[in-house]
């Protein structure tokens, strides 16, 4: 291909232009339904959520748009400690994400590199099998297992790890544990996929160039799985920070999170503007964290990640 020079001025015929138009229009026709659906039922609600946060009023008389930006300031200074819930949710989400990476990486590594091809699918399926049971039931089962009468608690009391009447429930540990449990597969899968793409000869090349097992792992395997880890983080962090279920089933008063606060603001106190402000803030903070992470770690194509 050459750089631009002048083309002869022979205008394309009308039929050529019509054909070019037909070919140009096709992608729009194909994506119009999806664009419309996403635009109308996803993007517009998201933007209108921002607008709702700027309204004032009450559940009885309704809400009017007054561009009331002070609702955001009230989140930090008002009587309800929303900032505390937010910080708590971020802490839970970040810890849960860190634990899933630590636990999921060896599992993915084992399936990708230490197992013969015919067993890979089966071993991966065993990790994915949790998806066959409703998320609510799984979390509820932990509630029963860890509760006062639950078998796990009774064994631990018997072993004097726990005192009588003491349980793991209602602690940050149980909430984070529930998050790790529920989102574990979301981390294993992308890391595994990234590892599968690594050419095994690269490991041999690293060994050939005098890299020992640790060198090979940290200088070849880990950098090449970066995109998988990023998509895992994306999925797990976003899911856990906003999640109201683990904290309400496995937690207590001391583990109240932003997800629960949003639910309550909508359904119990019906402060729609506060609820909308909370979700907008949550979205913004998550966006900033992920953007910074992508910048610092440097990811290739963001669309490759999902």
């Amino acid at each position: 291909m050459t750089s631009a020079t002048t083309l002869p001025e022979a205008a394309p015929t009308r039929r050529v232009r019509l054909e070019a138009l037909r070919r140009g229009v096709t992608p729009y026709l194909l994506s119009i339904a999806g664009f419309g659906w996403l635009g109308f039922f996803f993007v517009i609600p998201l933007v209108s959520g921002l607008l709702v946060s700027l309204m004032t009023g009450n559940p009885d008389q309704g809400y009017v748009l007054t561009w009331n930006w002070s609702v955001y300031a009230d989140l930090f200074t008002g009587p309800t400690p929303y900032w505390l819930y937010l910080v708590r949710s971020l802490t839970y989400g970040l810890s849960a994400t860190a634990f899933t990476i630590i636990l999921a990486f060896p599992v993915a590594y084992f399936i990708a590199f230490r197992v013969s091809a015919r067993w890979k699918t089966t071993l991966l399926a065993l990790v994915m099998v949790t998806f066959f049971v409703s998320f609510i039931i799984r979390t509820d089962m932990w509630f029963y297992l860890l509760g006062g009468n639950g078998p796990i608690t009774r064994v631990l009391v018997h072993l004097h790890v726990l005192d009588h009447g003491q349980t793991f429930l209602s602690t940050p540990g149980s909430v984070i544990g529930g998050m790790v449990y529920n989102d574990f597969a979301f981390m294993v899968l992308p890391i595994y996929v990234a590892m599968e793409r690594i050419d095994p000869r690269l490991h041999e090349a690293s060994n050939d160039l005098f890299g020992n097992r640790a060198n090979t792992f940290f200088r070849v395997t880990v950098p090449l799985t970066r995109s998988g880890v990023f998509s895992g983080i994306l999925l797990v962090l976003i899911d856990t920070v906003g999640d109201p279920v683990n904290s309400s089933i496995l937690g207590g008063k001391e583990t109240y999170t932003i997800g629960q606060a949003i639910q309550n603001a909508y359904f119990t106190t019906q402060q729609y503007n506060v609820a909308a402000a909370l979700s907008t803030l949550l979205m913004a903070i998550l966006g900033i964290i992920l953007f910074l992470y992508a910048r610092v770690v440097g990811t290739e194509n963001i669309e490759d990640l999902i």
Partner: peptide
């Protein structure tokens, strides 16, 4: 002639 953007193929 065929061009792709600025380039002439």
């Amino acid at each position: 002639s065929r061009r792709f953007g600025d380039a002439i193929a």
